[in-house]
Computed example of a mutant assay.
Amino acid sequence: MTIRKIKLGPIVLTVLFGALSIFFLLPLVWMMSAASKTEKEVWTFPIQWIPKDWHFAQNFKTVWMGDVSFGLFYMNSVKIALISTLATLIVSAMAGYALSKLKFTGKGLVFSAMMAFMMIPEQATLVPRYIMIKEMGLYDTHAALIVMGMFSSYFTFLLRQFMIGVHNDLLEAAELDGAGFYRIFWSVMLPLSRPILATVGIIKFIWTWNDYQGPLIMLNSTNLYTIPLGMQFFKEEFGTTISVMMMASLAAIIPLLVLFLVLQKQVIKGISIGGVKG
Protein backbone atom coordinates (compact mmCIF):
# COMPACT_ATOMS: atom_id res chain seq x y z
CA MET A 1 0.00 0.00 0.00
CA THR A 2 1.44 3.36 -1.08
CA ILE A 3 1.29 6.19 1.43
CA ARG A 4 1.10 9.60 -0.18
CA LYS A 5 2.96 12.43 1.47
CA ILE A 6 0.75 15.40 2.16
CA LYS A 7 2.36 18.70 1.24
CA LEU A 8 1.29 21.32 3.75
CA GLY A 9 2.53 24.28 1.69
CA PRO A 10 -0.26 24.30 -0.95
CA ILE A 11 -2.90 23.61 1.72
CA VAL A 12 -1.73 26.52 3.87
CA LEU A 13 -1.61 28.86 0.86
CA THR A 14 -5.11 27.80 -0.22
CA VAL A 15 -6.53 28.47 3.25
CA LEU A 16 -4.66 31.78 3.48
CA PHE A 17 -5.86 33.02 0.08
CA GLY A 18 -9.39 31.84 0.85
CA ALA A 19 -9.39 33.88 4.07
CA LEU A 20 -8.00 36.91 2.25
CA SER A 21 -10.66 36.64 -0.46
CA ILE A 22 -13.39 36.63 2.19
CA PHE A 23 -11.79 39.66 3.82
CA PHE A 24 -11.72 41.58 0.52
CA LEU A 25 -15.31 40.62 -0.26
CA LEU A 26 -16.68 41.91 3.05
CA PRO A 27 -17.16 45.53 1.84
CA LEU A 28 -19.13 44.28 -1.17
CA VAL A 29 -21.26 42.02 1.01
CA TRP A 30 -21.90 44.88 3.43
CA MET A 31 -22.90 47.16 0.54
CA MET A 32 -25.39 44.58 -0.74
CA SER A 33 -26.74 44.12 2.78
CA ALA A 34 -27.06 47.88 3.42
CA ALA A 35 -28.85 48.37 0.08
CA SER A 36 -31.57 46.01 1.30
CA LYS A 37 -32.07 47.58 4.74
CA THR A 38 -33.95 50.47 6.25
CA GLU A 39 -31.82 53.45 7.21
CA LYS A 40 -32.25 52.70 10.92
CA GLU A 41 -31.08 49.13 10.50
CA VAL A 42 -27.97 50.22 8.60
CA TRP A 43 -26.69 51.97 11.72
CA THR A 44 -27.40 48.99 13.98
CA PHE A 45 -24.35 47.62 15.80
CA PRO A 46 -23.22 44.87 15.76
CA ILE A 47 -23.77 44.55 12.01
CA GLN A 48 -26.71 42.41 10.94
CA TRP A 49 -25.60 40.93 7.63
CA ILE A 50 -29.07 39.57 6.83
CA PRO A 51 -31.72 42.32 7.05
CA LYS A 52 -34.67 41.71 9.34
CA ASP A 53 -36.87 44.13 7.40
CA TRP A 54 -36.15 43.87 3.65
CA HIS A 55 -36.28 47.34 2.12
CA PHE A 56 -34.75 46.46 -1.25
CA ALA A 57 -37.76 47.40 -3.41
CA GLN A 58 -38.21 50.78 -1.74
CA ASN A 59 -34.52 51.69 -2.10
CA PHE A 60 -34.54 50.49 -5.70
CA LYS A 61 -37.55 52.69 -6.46
CA THR A 62 -35.92 55.70 -4.82
CA VAL A 63 -32.80 55.31 -6.96
CA TRP A 64 -34.39 54.62 -10.33
CA MET A 65 -37.65 56.55 -10.04
CA GLY A 66 -36.63 59.51 -7.88
CA ASP A 67 -35.93 63.11 -8.79
CA VAL A 68 -32.31 62.38 -9.76
CA SER A 69 -32.02 61.06 -13.35
CA PHE A 70 -30.04 57.95 -12.40
CA GLY A 71 -31.32 55.98 -15.39
CA LEU A 72 -30.14 58.69 -17.80
CA PHE A 73 -26.68 58.81 -16.22
CA TYR A 74 -26.57 55.03 -16.37
CA MET A 75 -27.38 54.86 -20.07
CA ASN A 76 -24.84 57.60 -20.80
CA SER A 77 -22.14 55.52 -19.11
CA VAL A 78 -23.19 52.36 -20.97
CA LYS A 79 -23.13 54.18 -24.30
CA ILE A 80 -19.72 55.81 -23.77
CA ALA A 81 -18.08 52.72 -22.25
CA LEU A 82 -19.27 50.33 -24.97
CA ILE A 83 -18.41 52.56 -27.94
CA SER A 84 -15.09 53.66 -26.46
CA THR A 85 -14.09 50.07 -25.65
CA LEU A 86 -14.98 48.81 -29.12
CA ALA A 87 -13.15 51.70 -30.81
CA THR A 88 -10.08 51.16 -28.62
CA LEU A 89 -10.00 47.44 -29.43
CA ILE A 90 -10.15 48.10 -33.18
CA VAL A 91 -7.56 50.91 -33.21
CA SER A 92 -5.15 49.21 -30.78
CA ALA A 93 -5.44 45.84 -32.54
CA MET A 94 -4.67 47.39 -35.94
CA ALA A 95 -1.74 49.36 -34.53
CA GLY A 96 -0.46 46.31 -32.64
CA TYR A 97 -0.67 44.19 -35.78
CA ALA A 98 1.23 46.77 -37.82
CA LEU A 99 3.98 47.11 -35.19
CA SER A 100 4.34 43.36 -34.72
CA LYS A 101 3.97 41.82 -38.18
CA LEU A 102 4.30 44.45 -40.90
CA LYS A 103 7.51 45.88 -42.29
CA PHE A 104 7.62 49.59 -43.04
CA THR A 105 10.06 52.47 -42.86
CA GLY A 106 10.31 54.09 -39.44
CA LYS A 107 8.72 51.18 -37.58
CA GLY A 108 11.31 51.27 -34.79
CA LEU A 109 10.96 55.04 -34.46
CA VAL A 110 7.18 54.80 -34.18
CA PHE A 111 7.45 52.12 -31.49
CA SER A 112 10.03 54.14 -29.55
CA ALA A 113 7.83 57.22 -29.68
CA MET A 114 4.86 55.19 -28.44
CA MET A 115 6.90 53.87 -25.51
CA ALA A 116 7.98 57.44 -24.69
CA PHE A 117 4.35 58.62 -24.70
CA MET A 118 3.48 55.90 -22.18
CA MET A 119 5.74 57.60 -19.62
CA ILE A 120 3.87 60.92 -19.88
CA PRO A 121 1.22 61.30 -17.12
CA GLU A 122 -2.33 61.69 -18.40
CA GLN A 123 -2.75 64.90 -16.40
CA ALA A 124 0.14 66.49 -18.32
CA THR A 125 -1.80 66.23 -21.59
CA LEU A 126 -5.16 67.31 -20.19
CA VAL A 127 -4.94 70.95 -21.33
CA PRO A 128 -3.78 70.14 -24.91
CA ARG A 129 -6.54 67.55 -25.24
CA TYR A 130 -9.11 70.03 -23.94
CA ILE A 131 -7.97 72.63 -26.51
CA MET A 132 -8.10 70.03 -29.31
CA ILE A 133 -11.61 68.97 -28.35
CA LYS A 134 -12.76 72.61 -28.28
CA GLU A 135 -11.20 73.31 -31.69
CA MET A 136 -12.87 70.18 -33.14
CA GLY A 137 -16.26 71.39 -31.90
CA LEU A 138 -16.79 68.31 -29.74
CA TYR A 139 -16.85 69.97 -26.32
CA ASP A 140 -19.87 69.01 -24.20
CA THR A 141 -20.60 65.91 -26.29
CA HIS A 142 -20.14 62.20 -25.69
CA ALA A 143 -18.01 62.10 -28.84
CA ALA A 144 -15.36 64.08 -26.98
CA LEU A 145 -14.92 61.30 -24.41
CA ILE A 146 -14.98 58.58 -27.08
CA VAL A 147 -12.42 60.26 -29.32
CA MET A 148 -10.21 61.16 -26.38
CA GLY A 149 -10.21 57.60 -25.06
CA MET A 150 -9.99 55.47 -28.20
CA PHE A 151 -6.22 55.89 -28.70
CA SER A 152 -4.07 54.12 -26.14
CA SER A 153 -0.32 53.48 -26.25
CA TYR A 154 -0.64 51.07 -23.35
CA PHE A 155 -3.20 48.80 -25.01
CA THR A 156 -1.35 49.00 -28.33
CA PHE A 157 1.77 47.82 -26.53
CA LEU A 158 -0.08 44.90 -24.90
CA LEU A 159 -1.55 43.73 -28.19
CA ARG A 160 1.73 44.19 -30.02
CA GLN A 161 3.56 42.04 -27.47
CA PHE A 162 0.93 39.31 -27.74
CA MET A 163 0.83 39.34 -31.54
CA ILE A 164 4.61 38.98 -31.76
CA GLY A 165 4.14 35.49 -30.33
CA VAL A 166 1.77 34.43 -33.14
CA HIS A 167 3.71 32.23 -35.58
CA ASN A 168 4.34 33.82 -38.95
CA ASP A 169 3.69 30.43 -40.55
CA LEU A 170 -0.04 30.87 -39.91
CA LEU A 171 -0.06 34.23 -41.64
CA GLU A 172 2.02 32.96 -44.55
CA ALA A 173 -0.31 29.98 -44.99
CA ALA A 174 -3.31 32.32 -45.17
CA GLU A 175 -1.46 34.49 -47.67
CA LEU A 176 -0.73 31.45 -49.86
CA ASP A 177 -4.44 30.64 -49.81
CA GLY A 178 -5.12 34.02 -51.36
CA ALA A 179 -6.01 36.03 -48.26
CA GLY A 180 -5.16 39.70 -48.42
CA PHE A 181 -3.95 42.04 -45.69
CA TYR A 182 -7.38 42.79 -44.22
CA ARG A 183 -8.57 39.19 -44.48
CA ILE A 184 -5.50 37.94 -42.60
CA PHE A 185 -6.06 40.55 -39.90
CA TRP A 186 -9.79 39.90 -39.39
CA SER A 187 -9.89 36.13 -40.00
CA VAL A 188 -6.55 34.97 -38.59
CA MET A 189 -4.95 37.47 -36.25
CA LEU A 190 -8.02 38.66 -34.34
CA PRO A 191 -9.38 35.15 -33.54
CA LEU A 192 -5.93 34.10 -32.30
CA SER A 193 -5.76 37.25 -30.16
CA ARG A 194 -9.13 36.69 -28.50
CA PRO A 195 -7.72 36.17 -24.95
CA ILE A 196 -5.73 39.41 -24.92
CA LEU A 197 -8.59 41.28 -26.60
CA ALA A 198 -10.90 40.17 -23.79
CA THR A 199 -8.37 41.33 -21.20
CA VAL A 200 -7.94 44.71 -22.89
CA GLY A 201 -11.71 45.06 -23.32
CA ILE A 202 -12.42 44.50 -19.63
CA ILE A 203 -9.69 46.86 -18.47
CA LYS A 204 -10.78 49.57 -20.90
CA PHE A 205 -14.46 49.21 -20.00
CA ILE A 206 -13.67 49.49 -16.28
CA TRP A 207 -11.44 52.53 -16.80
CA THR A 208 -14.07 54.26 -18.93
CA TRP A 209 -16.95 53.35 -16.63
CA ASN A 210 -15.13 54.69 -13.55
CA ASP A 211 -13.63 57.75 -15.27
CA TYR A 212 -14.42 60.90 -13.34
CA GLN A 213 -11.83 63.36 -14.63
CA GLY A 214 -12.70 63.09 -18.33
CA PRO A 215 -16.46 63.76 -18.04
CA LEU A 216 -15.81 66.45 -15.43
CA ILE A 217 -13.60 68.40 -17.86
CA MET A 218 -15.31 67.64 -21.18
CA LEU A 219 -19.01 67.75 -20.22
CA ASN A 220 -21.05 70.70 -19.07
CA SER A 221 -24.68 69.65 -19.63
CA THR A 222 -26.29 67.68 -16.82
CA ASN A 223 -28.18 65.41 -19.22
CA LEU A 224 -24.84 64.18 -20.61
CA TYR A 225 -23.33 63.24 -17.25
CA THR A 226 -22.09 59.73 -16.56
CA ILE A 227 -22.42 57.60 -13.42
CA PRO A 228 -19.36 59.01 -11.58
CA LEU A 229 -20.67 62.57 -12.01
CA GLY A 230 -24.25 61.47 -11.40
CA MET A 231 -23.27 60.02 -8.04
CA GLN A 232 -22.47 63.57 -6.93
CA PHE A 233 -26.15 64.43 -7.36
CA PHE A 234 -27.00 61.47 -5.16
CA LYS A 235 -24.49 62.63 -2.59
CA GLU A 236 -26.16 66.04 -2.47
CA GLU A 237 -29.67 64.57 -2.38
CA PHE A 238 -29.17 61.43 -0.30
CA GLY A 239 -25.75 61.98 1.27
CA THR A 240 -27.02 61.06 4.73
CA THR A 241 -29.18 58.16 3.53
CA ILE A 242 -26.66 55.35 3.42
CA SER A 243 -29.10 52.65 2.29
CA VAL A 244 -30.06 54.59 -0.85
CA MET A 245 -26.43 55.48 -1.60
CA MET A 246 -25.45 51.81 -1.31
CA MET A 247 -28.27 50.84 -3.68
CA ALA A 248 -26.99 53.36 -6.25
CA SER A 249 -23.41 52.12 -5.78
CA LEU A 250 -24.54 48.52 -6.18
CA ALA A 251 -26.32 49.37 -9.43
CA ALA A 252 -23.19 51.17 -10.65
CA ILE A 253 -20.90 48.14 -10.27
CA ILE A 254 -23.27 45.49 -11.67
CA PRO A 255 -22.11 45.92 -15.33
CA LEU A 256 -18.49 45.47 -14.23
CA LEU A 257 -19.31 42.26 -12.36
CA VAL A 258 -21.32 40.86 -15.26
CA LEU A 259 -18.56 41.73 -17.74
CA PHE A 260 -15.92 39.99 -15.68
CA LEU A 261 -18.04 36.88 -15.03
CA VAL A 262 -18.77 36.51 -18.75
CA LEU A 263 -15.18 37.01 -19.93
CA GLN A 264 -13.15 35.75 -16.96
CA LYS A 265 -12.00 32.56 -18.74
CA GLN A 266 -10.63 34.57 -21.66
CA VAL A 267 -8.95 37.00 -19.27
CA ILE A 268 -7.26 34.23 -17.27
CA LYS A 269 -6.18 32.55 -20.50
CA GLY A 270 -4.74 35.80 -21.83
CA ILE A 271 -2.81 36.43 -18.60
CA SER A 272 -1.48 32.86 -18.46
CA ILE A 273 -0.40 32.91 -22.11
CA GLY A 274 1.32 36.25 -21.59
CA GLY A 275 3.07 34.86 -18.53
CA VAL A 276 4.35 31.82 -20.43
CA LYS A 277 5.61 33.93 -23.31
CA GLY A 278 7.26 36.22 -20.74
Rank of each mutant, 00 (worst) to 15 (best):
V244D: 02
A19G: 01
E236V: 14
I11H: 13
F181W: 13
M75W: 15
L256V: 05
I131E: 04
L216M: 15
Y130A: 10
G9D: 15
I47Y: 00
I146C: 01
K79M: 03
F70H: 07
E236Q: 13
N223M: 14
L197K: 02
H142A: 05
T226F: 10
F151E: 14
G165T: 08
I47V: 08
Y97K: 00
F23N: 01
W43R: 12
A113N: 15
T62R: 06
Y154T: 14
L257D: 07
L8K: 10
G178Y: 00
I3S: 15
L261G: 08
E41Y: 02
I242F: 09
I6N: 05
L259Q: 07
S84V: 10
V188E: 05
L28M: 11
V29D: 01
G270A: 11
W49D: 05
G239V: 09
V12M: 08
Y182D: 00
M148W: 14
G278F: 04
A124C: 09
I217E: 12
E41M: 01
N59V: 03
G71D: 09
W64Y: 09
A251G: 10
W209H: 02
I227V: 12
S187I: 08
I83V: 03
L256E: 01
S36D: 05
I206F: 06
I196S: 03
M163I: 02
D67H: 06
L197H: 07
L89T: 00
I146V: 04
I268G: 10
L109N: 14
